[in-house]
């Protein structure tokens, strides 16, 4: 991988500042993504995964948010862009699909109008030309009777079709990077798989880079080349899908595996992670996972572990942020 990465994030941190408290939602996240590569970010609610995505596009309300670190997308320093330059970045370079298509689509505009608007905002196309492209996009995301659906309002579509329409809007300007924020979570199980497969196909056909945020391990494994596990605003473990799933070297990742239905044989009990995530307004001094960790030692409550390289697989380095990665797995084995 000698070419410049599509995305390069260094030490990104996001704080939400209010009069009462400062919530440290993201605390020093760094990663890279090559063109056409898929990164799955796994984590529970409040782990900072969605905030990370929004920070990449600078979508967070600037009045209440403190952003720090470096974000580079397609060679552009995102942190340095002004409003107009950001608007040019959003759409043709980075696009996003949201968790809940009902609330993320404007309810009083037709699907067609919303796609056409997204196209004409960025490209010197006539309405007729844009409409033709909108139709192609609806066909691309496999919406049946696409011509009719162009003039449909969001509430007239089923959940699955709505999510497809949202994908069509996101793809309107052929983005190099697609950010997907739990795009299948709000859908029925059967529709979930269809949308997931569609996204994977589109990503491969269009050669897009994709960052796929989910709390569902099965979904993350299905689409990703590499995985990052987030906890309390940090990427606690990252590596190839195989490394992270088969050889977890962070107790939190291990806990996730054991509390997921996919990983446990029938009849066996699921092992939940005890305790609850830390308060992001008052993070503990050492490792944020230490209070819930089976393996926690003396070091864990005093210093946050630096990234530790475990090995590599399929060209992806395997890192963990744990003081005792060699202990992981011993408690339950």
């Amino acid at each position: 991988m000698t070419e410049t990465p599509l995305v390069k994030v260094e030490d990104l941190s996001v704080q939400f500042v209010s009069r009462e408290s400062t919530v440290r939602a993201v605390n020093g996240v760094s990663f890279e993504l090559a063109r056409g590569e898929v990164l799955g970010i796994l984590g529970e609610s409040g782990s900072g995964k969605s905030v990370t995505l929004r920070a990449l596009m600078r979508l967070l309300p600037h009045r209440k948010t403190r952003l720090a670190g470096r974000i580079e997308i397609a060679g552009q320093d995102v942190m340095a862009l002004d409003t107009a330059a950001l608007a040019r970045l959003r759409g043709p370079t980075v696009a996003m699909i949201f968790q809940e298509p009902m609330t993320a689509l404007d309810p009083v505009f037709t699907i067609g109008d919303q796609i056409v608007e997204a196209i004409t905002q960025h490209e010197p196309l006539t309405r007729t030309g844009a409409r033709k492209r909108a139709l192609e996009l609806l066909e691309l995301v496999q919406i049946p009777s696409a011509v009719r659906r162009l003039d449909a309002y969001p509430h007239q579509l089923s959940g699955g079709l709505r999510q497809r329409a949202m994908i069509a809007i996101a793809l309107a300007c052929r983005p190099a990077l697609l950010l997907a924020d739990e795009p299948t979570t709000a859908l029925d199980a059967t529709v979930q798989i269809q949308v997931l497969l569609l996204l994977r196909t589109l990503q491969q056909e269009l050669g897009m880079g994709m960052i796929f945020v989910t709390h569902d391990l099965g979904v993350a494994v299905e689409v990703s080349h590499k995985l990052a596990v987030m906890y309390a605003g940090r990427m606690v473990e990252s590596g190839s899908v195989h490394d992270v799933v088969r050889n977890p070297r962070h107790p939190y990742t291990e806990g996730l595996m054991h509390s997921t239905v996919h990983e446990v044989a029938k009849g066996e009990r699921l092992t939940p992670i005890r305790g609850s995530p830390p308060n992001l307004a008052a993070l503990p001094a050492g490792c944020s996972f230490a209070p819930r960790c089976t393996y926690a030692g003396a070091q864990c409550s005093t210093s946050y572990p630096p990234p530790q390289r475990i090995g590599s697989d399929a060209g992806y380095e395997h890192y963990t942020r744990c003081h005792y990665p060699e202990h992981v797995g011993s408690a339950l084995a």
Binding site: L59, L89, R90, P92, Q121
Partner: peptide, 8 residues
């Protein structure tokens, strides 16, 4: 937010 994400 989604409209902003489209670069409008």
């Amino acid at each position: 937010e989604a409209l902003r994400a489209r670069g409008l």
